[in-house]
Write a protein that binds this DNA or RNA. Structure first.
Length: 427
DNA sequence: ATTAGGG
DNA sequence: CCCTAAT
């Protein structure tokens, strides 16, 4: 029996973080997840929300982290990790903007300072960055690149296991395959505007990662040495209401073939020197597990603490099953209905009833491409609920009571006449 | 592709 | 909003 493990992606979500240093935070968390005693079969669709509450600023030059304006050092951040939070969304392209770096090079992982953990040192990173005190001449306002890292992406795992194998052996096999990836040549890949950035010597400014305050699509991924770049996914569509970014609705692109697209930002293909080399998987597991277990971490060790981890079930699907080809659909960006939209919805439902959402869509939201008939149906459901609860319990933009009254009236009316009116086709 | 409901 | 069984 050949199985393909899909949805194999480690997802993290870091909110309000500043600074690419979090690559290592994420990676560290990742390693912890992969190496801990957690059932590997559940390391799927898990996301981690770090620093979910509160702003965190990282001063790239000073190597300091600020919380709510109060300075602290990176090792203290472990206190602010919020519980892991499950999320099903992936392939988020973080945005970054502003900022310029005084120095080029990759941030040196603090892990390198911990004894025996040199394995996790950033190989090839400019060694002076982390170890030396940065010149505090910064205005530090423009020197910060704000990154919102929502996910890492790692390639699929392919394993083969006899059909007579036990579930336990399957889990172990998965574990081995996963740790093998970690142990060998895992490194962080960067996608900028859908193209891989491979020139590590360039500054963020030069590569356009922090292009004059404009948003740019930036993606990170964990990839083993031999794996090719996964095709980048779309970015958020918060701005485009109808234009729509060219996405891939069919959702393939899991191909492990290299992307033919030439990379503007990376003429040279040197291996990412952020590669993390773990000499021994077992040792790595142990050391990391210890770190996560012990609250007393050497000040130079882990950046983050790992709270209780909620795991999700792994999606191990038969190889021939027609899954979404290992594509991860992003949860649509939330678009609260405006009052005018509600108005249009109510009016349409008053006319068409509550069983013909497709017609409602065509009638009142035909040009609103982001509103599907399912959305409208759902919205009506919430509208009815909203109209029934007390105004104090309502959230979002206040809706005119008169409008909510119409909702209730229409709901009551069509509840009575639905069966009958279903036969008629008024337009 | 739509509907209808639960998650 | 998502997921999906049932049409």
């Amino acid at each position: 029996m050949t199985c393909r493990i899909e949805f194999y992606e480690f997802v993290t979500s870091i909110n309000s973080c500043y600074g690419p240093l979090f690559w290592w935070d994420l990676f560290f968390l990742f390693v912890l997840l992969m190496s801990g005693n957690y059932d590997l079969t559940s390391i799927i669709c898990v996301s981690i929300t770090v620093f979910g509450s509160g702003l965190m600023y990282l001063d790239w030059k000073r190597k300091q982290v600020y919380y709510y304006g109060k300075p602290c050092y990176t090792r203290q951040r472990s206190q602010r990790i919020s519980p892991f939070k499950r999320r099903k969304l992936f392939d988020q392209i973080p945005t970054s903007r502003y900022g310029e770096f005084q120095r080029e090079g990759i941030y040196n992982s603090p892990y390198k300072r911990s004894n025996g953990d040199k394995r996790f040192a950033a190989k090839g990173a400019s060694p002076s960055v982390a170890s030396q005190q940065a010149p505090p001449k910064s205005k530090s306002r423009d020197s910060i690149v704000k990154l919102h890292i929502k996910s890492f992406k790692i390639p699929e795992l392919f394993i083969e296991i006899p059909a007579t194998a036990t579930v336990g052996s399957l889990k172990r096999t998965v574990m081995e395959a996963a740790t093998a990836i970690l142990g060998d040549d895992l490194h962080v890949g960067i996608l900028l505007q859908g193209k891989t950035v491979r020139d590590d010597s360039k500054t963020l400014l030069q590569t356009g990662i922090c292009h004059d305050g404009r948003h740019c699509n930036l993606g990170f991924m964990l990839e083993p040495k031999s794996a090719q770049i996964m095709p980048p996914l779309h970015t958020d569509d918060s701005r485009l209401l109808s234009s729509g970014m060219p996405q891939d609705p069919t959702g393939h692109s899991v191909s492990l073939t290299p992307q033919p697209e030439p990379s503007d930002v990376s003429p040279l293909p040197p291996v990412m020197n952020m590669g993390c080399h773990v000499d021994n998987n077992v040792n790595a597991v142990c050391s990391l597990a210890d770190i996560s277990t012990n609250n007393t971490m050497p000040d130079s060790q882990a950046l983050v603490a790992v709270p209780a981890i909620t795991m999700e079930a792994l999606a191990v699907v038969p190889f021939h099953q027609k899954s979404r080809h290992s594509e991860f659909l992003q949860r649509r960006t939330r678009r609260p209905f405006s009052v005018s939209e509600v108005e249009a919805l109510v009016q349409a439902v008053e006319k068409l009833g509550t069983g013909r959402w497709r017609d409602v869509k065509l009638r009142a939201f035909d040009n609103a491409k982001h509103r599907t008939y399912v959305d409208l149906k759902d919205k009506w459901k919430t509208l009815v609920h909203t109209a029934r609860i007390s105004p104090q319990q309502r959230r979002g933009e206040p809706l005119p009571q008169q409008l909510l009254d119409r909702v209730l009236a229409a709901h009551a009316y069509w509840s009575q006449h639905q069966a009958y009116q279903q036969l008629k086709i008024p337009v």
